[in-house]
Simulated scan of single mutants.
Amino acid sequence: MSENRTLLVEMAEGLFADLSGAEFASAWPRVAEAGFASLLVPADAGGFGGDWGDVLAVLRLAGLNALAAPLAEPILAHHLLAQAGIAAPEGLLTIAAPGQRVPFARHADGIVRAGDGAVALYLPGSYSVTQGTSPAGEPWDAVDFTGEPVASVASDIDLLALGAFARVAQASGALEAAFTLSIDHVNTRVQFGRALAKFQAVQQALAEFSEEAAAVDASAAACAAALDHGDAGFEIAAAKLRTGIAIDRSVPIAHRVHGAIGFTIEYALNHHTRRLMGWRSEFGSDSFWAERLGRAVAKLGGKGLWHEVAARTDRQVAASG
């Protein structure tokens, strides 16, 4: 754990709670001013010098508060540029992974593209944007790179995996928020003379919800620990797939126990569940990660899989100790 995580979390908690419900135009300037984009940039390069556990903590809080400003994207963009030795321009930077739409591209002052063996920085004028929206109504744009990048460096970094980790981290917070809203609702809503929480079917459904949320929390923590170790491909594939399963099971439960109120735009639940449904397909769908994980497991074989899982677990236990 980085030395400054407690202060980082306290700052993020206060800011994101204050921005909960704010639109992009008012939220982004304050997020930018806080300097989260430099979280993974080394301190000797003017950054925060944080680790992946710090990233998890901040992104989880963003998901918990339904932050309507890009956070994962600028953090990863600045990380990629720092790794490649490319100077970062001022303003909002977002990321482009192979075969994916680009979050907040219409608002970006630059796009960091990673894939095909290189990390490259593109500035406005070297790409065109076709606007689209995510299920949460946020910018989720198609980008056509029509010009040359201002800088490009050879790199084998897997941006799809890093983006997938970011969505797992955000989903862990959003699931907690949806679960808390569901618990509060069933404890206050009365039906047939009893609080909904007193019905066994409701209790069973929320018990399942809590299990799913806990699984995503554990998956996200394993990814962060593995990323800090330097080899997280296996954990990320498993976590993104497991998060997709959790979303598939948990979102319907949240809306069933809420009834119609959960779908109203004024109520907080849909701000979390619509993001969750969008994140499930971003940076690789369930089928994409199932295939990648399946190929890795098949290549290891039975004994090899056991040894690989045990070795990775031992590394994480040693790191946490």
Rank of each mutant, 00 (worst) to 15 (best):
L269Q: 06
I265M: 13
H258W: 11
H258M: 15
L269G: 03
Y267V: 10
G259W: 02
G259H: 04
V257A: 13
A260I: 05
I261F: 00
V251N: 01
N270H: 07
R249L: 02
A246Y: 02
L269H: 05
L241K: 12
N270F: 07
H255R: 03
T243R: 12
R242S: 15
A268F: 11
I247S: 01
L241H: 06
S250L: 06
I245F: 07
R249Y: 00
R242W: 01
I261G: 00
I261L: 02
L269I: 08
P252V: 02
T264P: 02
K240D: 10
G259C: 03
I253Q: 00
G244V: 04
A246C: 10
T243A: 15
I247P: 02
P252L: 06
T264C: 07
A260E: 09
A254Y: 06
G244N: 03
I253K: 00
G244D: 01
I253G: 00
L269E: 07
H255A: 03
R256I: 14
I245C: 05
D248W: 05
A268K: 12
G262Y: 03
I265S: 13
Y267N: 14
A254G: 11
I247Q: 01
G244A: 10
I265C: 06
H255E: 00
R242E: 11
A254P: 05
E266A: 15
T264F: 07
A246H: 07
I253V: 14
S250V: 01
L269K: 04
G244I: 02
G244H: 04
H258L: 13
H255T: 01
R249W: 00
G262I: 03
V257D: 13
G259A: 08
I265H: 15
A260R: 11
T243S: 14
T264I: 09
D248Q: 15
V257Y: 09
I245L: 14
I253E: 00
N270V: 07
I245A: 10
R242L: 11
V257K: 11
L241M: 09
A239F: 08
E266K: 13
G262D: 08
